[in-house]
């Protein structure tokens, strides 16, 4: 890119255009509220300056209705924008069910992406245009923030928990991807590129990279880990230890020992592996070892993907 002034950033999604529209309209309203202030203030200061003989009789020093007016009217105007902005924001938290799940792990100072079918990449993220993509993100060390200006979207990645972000980029192209949360020495170098490809090109790319990273899909890698780490030693029907069966657990309600219930989601599954004592399943003793110091986040992602896929198997039965 050339070093000129670029006055408006490109917009790669419908959402981005909506945000531009929102800020444009808000900007217009801001002028509406402030121009009178600036104009009147200068005009009064000049018109009523010391040396001038003007009529200063009956200068008001209070007026309840005027006060109420200028408190309430701007407030109501802004409230309209509040509703608009909040609706747009809420959309960002309602991913369509068919969004492609891509796992993201950030660490000082790189981005690691795992596609559902096994392709892995660092710093560059390839996605198909016009298809919703959901990023399931976590961090290995400090807080980072996934930021693509062209999407007008940003989400922090917090160690120890999952956050997610979904988008539907409809304009193919290469868009810068930046880390927006200060994360130490090379924060400003922690960048990458979001590459939005026409779907057919994406398919080709996937085909080329499918086993570039791992053997098989993420879930298959998870299945291997599940065996190798000895999870199946407890979590299988044949095991002597009493541990809950895990087939089809994803998305199901789980009864907890402290009386509560929750839906088994990404966060719960990963917590169960990393911090098993945090929430103990009802009817079981808290004997599951913690894998917190043993597993890298990518491995946890693979395990979670495997546990999810066992749901898919169940459903298709």
């Amino acid at each position: 890119m050339s070093a000129g002034i670029e006055l408006w950033p490109p917009a790669a999604s419908h959402h981005a255009q909506q945000v531009d529209l929102l800020i444009g309209s808000f900007g217009a309203m801001v002028w509406l509220l402030t121009i009178p202030v600036f104009v009147l203030m200068s005009w009064f200061a000049i018109r009523y300056r010391r040396s001038r003989e003007v009529n200063r009789d009956h200068a008001p020093t209070r007026n309840l209705w005027v006060e109420v007016g200028w408190s309430v009217i701007p407030f109501i105007l802004v409230l309209g924008f509040y509703v608009w902005a909040t609706m747009l924001f809420l959309d960002l938290y309602r991913p369509p069910p068919d969004a492609i799940p891509i796992h993201v792990v950030a660490k000082q100072w790189m981005w690691k992406f795992q596609h559902p079918d096994g392709a892995r990449e660092i710093n560059n993220l390839h996605v198909p245009a016009g298809r919703p993509v959901k990023l399931i993100m976590t961090s290995e060390d400090v807080i980072h923030s996934f930021y693509v200006p062209a999407l007008r979207q940003k989400q922090d990645l917090v160690p120890g928990r999952y956050t997610s972000l979904w988008f539907n980029a409809d304009k193919p192209g290469r868009y810068p991807l930046r880390c927006a949360e200060f994360c130490g020495a090379d924060h400003s170098a922690m960048g990458g590129t979001l590459i939005v490809m026409p779907p057919q090109d994406y398919a080709v790319w996937l085909g080329r990279n499918r086993d570039g990273g791992m053997d098989g899909t993420l879930a298959q890698a998870g299945a291997r880990l599940f065996r190798d780490l000895g999870c199946s030693g407890c979590h299988s029907a044949a095991a002597s230890v009493k541990a809950p069966p895990l087939e089809g657990i994803f998305g199901r309600p789980v009864a907890l020992a402290d009386g509560g219930t929750l839906i088994a989601d990404d966060q719960y599954l990963s917590d169960s592996i990393l911090l098993p004592n945090k929430q103990v399943a009802a009817g079981y003793r808290p004997i599951m070892p913690t894998y917190g110091n043993v597993l890298a986040p990518e491995q946890v992602n693979a395990l979670v993907a495997y546990l999810k896929s066992s749901r898919a198997r169940e459903d298709s039965k």
Binding site: L22, F26, F89, L92, K154, A180, E181
Partner: peptide, 15 residues
């Protein structure tokens, strides 16, 4: 106030 608008802040926070 613009920053307080959720959808705008998502884009411009930490910039």
């Amino acid at each position: 106030l613009m920053l307080a608008m959720l959808a705008i802040d998502v884009h411009v926070t930490d910039t």
